[in-house]
Design a binder for these strands. Structure first.
Lengths: 222, 222, 222, 222
DNA sequence: CATGAATGAGTCTTCATTCAT
DNA sequence: TATGAATGAAGACTCATTCAT
């Protein structure tokens, strides 16, 4: 009846223990249904994972594409990409973590499809960096490494962000937009007046309340 | 003695498929020994993982500590930390990946110990950032987020770096030192003349030649 | 009403894959109905099987009994039994196969009932052979083995016969009547003028068209 | 340590309940080992079945080939084939039953291989019948149906024979040789002086003592 | 030092069946 | 009449680990 509930249970467990270490019975228990019933909603454990990752990548790509259309200025575009990426990652943090860590658990067909989606998404960053570099807006040595650095930095938000923590969502987004500007050698004031912030949606797969032990990390984080 | 071979086999498999998805028999096969023999070298599957992670964190901490002692200038210290982190991560890329991803596979005791080690290591970055901020060398808004951004960005090297790729190790190190400088609002020229590069050691646990399929990532990477 | 469709679907699958290897969902799919609906027509998977076997044995016994009443001459009686057995087996070949192979899948009560039916039927052959032997019409060493030999030989028709094959139904029936005559040491000409052929009915449970792969057998058969 | 024991346990259960209805745990219990241990001896449930059927067909073919070489006289050759077939089938009755009934449980590759073996074996009968027909030794209408009739009749021995029953092995063999002679229109006395009986071997897969319930058949049989 | 044999608990998935709708 | 949802038990098979040799 509620596929969302199953997804959220799965994300909770996959993010905490990992896909391979999560049993199907455990999944059922977390979702409040019998493990056999789970197969009514989902063809297999893997296809459940694929569903989760796919919806996450779709959201990222859609929002990224919208960000690209918002402006013709590479600086604003990058700001849009970064804030969108950070926003989605922070709000759907466990889902994002699963999408990052568990790609390898997929078998050939699913992996090929979803890796292609991720590549397509990351290319958005590559394109903006290339263009900003070409037209002289950015001061970059190596666009490839710059793309990787920005993406890893932003994706990392999924590793430490906690809703209700010291900083609010928009503050974090703004911080990373600023960081990205520094990495591309652009003064942040260039963005003054630009409206690059999109609304961020919580995915169906994102658990509402995080159980405490989801945070394996120590006392240092954030 | 041959423990190194076991470790390398383990890292190869853990990095590719993950700890939970790797069987003990598979490990034996990769290492060229019977799975039962494996228990002569290693107490259990988990203690093998713990050994790998521990040696990686020890290496990071030792090198980081050396970097801190090299200079009193926060800028040089941070450059040392970053270059060391990137260097170790790149050279021992699969080991680093395992140390990053598989912490959650550990049971309580091991996790507590190793998480403490990681926290202690990351604190080195925090301390330098704090001091650089306090003495006015750095231009930072939020030291915590800055630390997280730098660390995630640098650790990400383990996700895409390939030995023998387009850029050499030192180029990559230098790039990230430069990136870190930008993030802390320091001109890279401040490092002119400073010798912050340490030699980077390949760990016993790092496989010499990476099988191609270790790289799940698509065509975009690096 | 549509019970026939269910039976035919069942026979198709039971004959091909066996009772135990056939799922209830598969049955539903083959019959074109939901697996739950199946329980409206049939109490359980086993009772469906019992129904099929029962109707097959009833047909055999009824026809056998009629054959016995047709004549007082043991030779003609046996010819009637054999032609009837072969005819029913050939025309309802899949049903007959199920009735032969899947008796063991039944639980106690059903098995007892249906095994008794089969015994009763086979006794018809035993009685004729006994009498033919006693009155000196047959030249037999051992009536029991003779009965078994004739029955196995005739039942075997279900294993290789194909409607539309090289030989027609009546030809096959006649062949086996001749073979039986030889086995009991009687010249076939003794049957000249005797009308022992009955019309053969297709059972409700017999699928009309056999899917090709029902025939697991190789190129040799018939 | 004793693959034979596993095979015998399997044959016992497969013959009684059928392959599909036999659980792996049941197999282990019957063989006196843990179900997991079973996988040390046998790759899978199916490969266990294939092993059993293969060894049975190999025995039949070997003995049949020897019978063919014993004489150039088609009558003697057929007598050799029949006595060998009946002998092996009777002595390895449960194995033979499994080989007959459970071919369909095999998946493609195994089925193709083993069906080819059975076809090759049955061709021996076909060849003898063809030649005896051609040279005028036999009085046959249709060699194909004659082959099928003889084979079904003889294979049927596996359905009712009981060691220690009323008739001894050689008596049964001699009976079926006589029956085959009648079916091909040859006087049994033609075999006087011919030595066509081979020694019959018990296969590794044949259980020594049959548990009572192996006999699903009723009171009539033999 | 090395290994084949062994196992209880676990894996994911399918089973026949029931029942509210 | 018909079905989607639901489930406890069972399916085949793999697991990490131990131990006698």
């Amino acid at each position: 009846m509620d596929l969302g509930r199953v997804q959220r249970a799965a994300v909770n467990l996959f993010a905490t223990k990992g896909f391979a270490a999560t049993g199907i019975r455990e999944l059922g228990a977390e979702a409040g249904i019998n493990s056999a019933t789970l197969y009514h909603y989902v063809g297999s454990k893997e296809s459940l994972l694929a569903l989760i990752i796919r919806s996450c990548l779709t959201e990222l790509t859609d929002a990224g594409t919208r960000a690209m259309r918002c402006s013709a200025d590479p600086v604003v575009q990058l700001a849009g990409l970064v804030s969108s990426h950070v926003g989605i990652t922070a709000v759907n943090q466990l889902t994002a973590r699963v999408a990052e860590y568990e790609m390898r658990a997929l078998t050939e067909v699913n992996r090929a499809e979803l890796q292609a989606m991720r590549d397509e998404y990351e290319m958005l960053f590559g394109q903006v960096l290339e263009r900003g570099h070409r037209v002289g807006s950015f001061e970059i040595e190596d666009t490839t490494m710059c793309r990787l650095a920005i993406l890893e930095m932003c994706t990392g938000v999924a590793h430490w962000y906690r809703p209700g923590g010291r900083l609010g969502l928009e503050e974090v987004q703004r911080y990373f937009v600023g960081a990205a500007c520094r990495l591309i050698g652009v003064d942040r004031s260039e963005l003054d007046g630009a409206d690059y912030l999109q609304e961020v949606r919580r995915l169906d797969s994102e658990p509402a309340a995080h159980s405490a032990d989801v945070w394996g990390t120590g006392t240092l984080a954030y």
